[in-house]
C-alpha cells in the first residue's frame, strides 16, 4: 500500500511539473473581457430604456402642468425675440415711422398670448 502511495505521489509530481509552464495569457483575458462587457451592457440596456422612457414621461407631464412653457409657446417666444430685434433697429433709425407703430401693435397682440413676456 505504501508503495502504491509512493507511485501516486511520484505520478502527481511528474504531472504537476509537466503542466507547470501552462500560463493563462492576455489573449484569453481579452476574450473574457469582451464577453463580460457585452453581457453587462445587455443587462444594463433595459434599465437605460426604462430611464429614458421615464424621462420622456416626466418631461411631457411637466409641460402639461406648465402651459406657459408648453411646446406651442416656444414658437411665439422666438417670433417675439425676432420682432424685438427688428423694432429695436427701427427705433434707432426711424423712430417716428409707420412701421414702428405697426410693429408695436403686433407686439402687443403677441404679448397677450404669451404670459410672462416683458411689456413695452
Amino acid at each position: 500500500m505504501k508503495q502504491q502511495e509512493d507511485f501516486s505521489k511520484l505520478l502527481a509530481d511528474k504531472l504537476r511539473a509537466t503542466h507547470e509552464p501552462l500560463v493563462a495569457d492576455e489573449a484569453l483575458w481579452q476574450a473574457i473581457a469582451a464577453k463580460v462587457t457585452t453581457q453587462s451592457q445587455r443587462r444594463a440596456w433595459p434599465w437605460y430604456s426604462l430611464a429614458a422612457s421615464l424621462a420622456v414621461i416626466a418631461f411631457w407631464t411637466y409641460l402639461g402642468a406648465n402651459p406657459a412653457q408648453n411646446m406651442s409657446g416656444h414658437t411665439p417666444q422666438i417670433a417675439l425675440i425676432s420682432l424685438d430685434a427688428e423694432l429695436q433697429h427701427l427705433l434707432l433709425t426711424e423712430p417716428d415711422s409707420v412701421e414702428v407703430a405697426l410693429l408695436l401693435e403686433k407686439r402687443k397682440a403677441m404679448q397677450i398670448n404669451l404670459p410672462g413676456s416683458i411689456e413695452l
Partner: peptide, 28 residues
C-alpha cells in the same frame, strides 16, 4: 487565478486547447 484554473482543467480534460476554452467559460 487563471493559470491555476487553466492547469486544473487541462489536467482533467487532457487537452490544452480544451482547457483554454473551458477556462474562458469558467471565468465568464
Amino acid at each position: 487565478y487563471a493559470s491555476g484554473v487553466l492547469r486544473l482543467v487541462t489536467g482533467i480534460l487532457g487537452s490544452v486547447e480544451d482547457g483554454r476554452d473551458l477556462t474562458q467559460e469558467i471565468f465568464i
